[in-house]
Amino acid sequence: MIGIDLVAVHRIEKLSGRAWYTAFWLRPEEFLYLSEKPNAGESLAGAITAKEAVMKAVGRGFRQGTRPANILLEWSPSGAPSATFEGTRYLLSVTHADGYAAAVALQSGAAA
């Protein structure tokens, strides 16, 4: 399955200062990794849109009990993102430009 999402970076930057919001979307280690990036707002928006894309690829959202913090984001040494949710791995492509962040998630099989 495949999922895609788009978000305005300024919306995430505004909400990312609220502890409840970041705890809902991100694990503590994800937030730490992203907040240390040079363009932290864009990186946070990219991570949130990546998790939305994974939920769309899964075909389940908030109403079906999916919680974004249960989706594990990981980055390779080169910075390439991927996600794991309920034992399934997702390849991610994340981009940000002109005030927007977008992500595509593609189911790739069982997690290693």
Score class of each variant (00 low, 15 high):
1 M>A: 15
1 M>P: 15
2 I>K: 13
3 G>R: 14
3 G>S: 13
6 L>R: 11
6 L>V: 15
7 V>G: 08
9 V>N: 02
9 V>E: 01
11 R>V: 00
12 I>D: 06
12 I>G: 03
12 I>N: 06
13 E>R: 14
13 E>P: 05
15 L>A: 15
15 L>T: 06
16 S>F: 04
16 S>H: 03
19 A>C: 01
19 A>S: 09
21 Y>V: 11
22 T>Q: 09
25 W>F: 13
26 L>P: 05
27 R>K: 12
29 E>T: 13
31 F>S: 06
31 F>H: 14
33 Y>K: 10
34 L>E: 01
35 S>N: 12
35 S>A: 12
36 E>C: 11
40 A>R: 14
41 G>D: 02
43 S>V: 03
43 S>Y: 00
43 S>R: 08
44 L>M: 04
44 L>W: 04
46 G>I: 01
47 A>R: 01
48 I>W: 10
50 A>S: 14
51 K>I: 07
58 V>G: 09
58 V>M: 10
58 V>W: 09
59 G>E: 10
59 G>T: 11
60 R>F: 11
63 R>Q: 14
64 Q>I: 06
65 G>W: 08
65 G>K: 09
66 T>K: 13
67 R>L: 14
68 P>A: 10
71 I>R: 06
72 L>Q: 15
74 E>H: 08
75 W>I: 01
76 S>T: 11
77 P>V: 01
77 P>T: 03
79 G>P: 00
79 G>Y: 02
79 G>T: 01
80 A>S: 07
80 A>N: 04
81 P>M: 03
83 A>C: 02
83 A>I: 05
85 F>E: 03
86 E>A: 15
86 E>V: 10
86 E>N: 12
87 G>P: 09
90 Y>W: 09
91 L>M: 08
91 L>Q: 14
94 V>A: 03
95 T>C: 12
95 T>F: 00
95 T>A: 14
95 T>Y: 00
96 H>S: 01
97 A>E: 15
98 D>C: 14
98 D>V: 11
98 D>A: 15
99 G>C: 06
101 A>R: 06
103 A>K: 11
103 A>R: 05
104 V>K: 12
105 A>T: 05
105 A>V: 06
107 Q>K: 13
110 A>M: 07
112 A>K: 14
112 A>V: 12
